[in-house]
Structure formats: structure tokens, C-alpha cells
Amino acid sequence: MIVLDHITKQFGAFAAVDDLSLTVPSGEFFGFLGPNGAGKTTTIKMMTGLFTPTRGRILINGFDVVQEPIDAKRTFGYIPDHPFLYDKLTGREFLFYIGALHELPKAALKLTVEKVIDQLELASWIDQRTEEYSQGMRQRVTFAAAFVHDPGTIIIDEPMVGLDPRSARIVKDMLKQKTREGASVFMSTHILEMADELCDRVGIIHRGKMIFLGSKAEMHEEKLKYDGKLESVFLELTKDDPF
């Protein structure tokens, strides 16, 4: 479960995220949409402890990210927008490294690593160094790393960058499966069709503020006001005011 409680992030006078509040219950697949520079990545970085909020509180599975960062981080898996890895480690070593940071027992970790390698179909190249990987291969390894400790919450920033159709399908199925098992998924994306396909609820952020928040049914109602496409809703809501 994720709770964002009036969070604000300011860089000097500029508010990248402005008084944002949101709750994502367990088992929900939440889609976080917005144009470039709207504040999506900043919000996610605050949720994962990479940024400190200027104001407000973030709870992940009951733990305050600022006050109890270690407990909070134990409970979520994070897939960043750019899948940077340690170039000189192999994919398998990276997974073991992440598992060790989560203090997983070695024997259990070995089984989990094998399982995610199998699920994400990484076996043929996982023992090469990550500097040899394509963008999509790196992305798949970051997915695997996020699943290694079986998190209760998954936070994803632009998940499909560089993934081929088969990998995208595998990832989507895994995420859906996680929500069925009770995990909450918070996914930022530009791909509206994917949000439409996967998400139980969608929020649209623009200039740091949440301008639309609705369930699948509410989203459907909103779509009918236009031409039945989420894209039209998105374009209308995020249209820049000339003044």
C-alpha cells in the first residue's frame, strides 16, 4: 500500500511536485500519467528515497520513507526509467548483489534468482557483463532485481523503454500476477494504451499537481466525453493554458 500525503518537492522557487496526495491500496495497479516534466519521475524518486520531499509524508506499506527508510525499502521493488547497472558485473552478479542488500539468505536467494531468470527468460545472457547488454536486456535485469525479494509494492518509472514485444508481454503478465497476489503496483508511463490495458486506476499529473484521478469506470466515463480514447482525455487535460 502506498500513501502520498500532501507531498511537495521544490527546487529553489520551482515546485516540481505540488501538494500531491494519493493512496494506492494493496492489490491495485495504479497508472501515473503526465506530460514530460510534469513531476512523475520526481514523485517516484521521492517514493523510493532518491529525493527527499520538501513537505509531506510518504508511507510505503505503513513505513515512512523519510523516517523509516530501511523498513520501507525492504518492502518495495523499484524499476527506474534508465536501467543503469554496474557495467563490470554480470546480470546474475547484480541480482545476487541486490539480494544481499535485502539480506536474503543465500540458499533462498539462489532459488529466487533462478526463478526470476527463468520467468524473464534471461538465462542465455545473464552471465555476460552488463556492459554488453542492450537497453532492453538491462531493463529486464532491473525488473528481475525488483522481484528478487518478492516485494509488496512495485514502483516503476517508464517500464517499457527498450523492451521488445515478447519481453513487454512477459513483464505485463508478471505485474498483473503480482497485483493478483496482493501487491500494489505504481507505474508511471507515457504509453496510454498500456495504462488503459493494465491499470485499475489512473492519475494524471500536470505541472506538479494531480489533475485527474479516477478508476477504470470513471476513466471510461471521461473518455466518452471525447472520442472514447484515453489519449483524447490526456491531451485535453494536459493542454497548456496560454496564460
Binding site: 532518491l50 527508510p69 530501511i70 525499502k73 523499484y78 543503469f84 547497472l85 554496474y86
Partner: peptide, 14 residues
């Protein structure tokens, strides 16, 4: 740590 530092900063280790 490079740009892979995110993996450590978002992991349960101070």
C-alpha cells in the same frame, strides 16, 4: 557507484 547508485539508494541499506 556511478549511475547505478540508484540500486543502492533504493535498497534497504543506509
Amino acid at each position: 557507484e556511478g549511475q547505478a547508485y540508484w540500486s543502492l539508494r533504493s535498497a534497504p541499506i543506509a
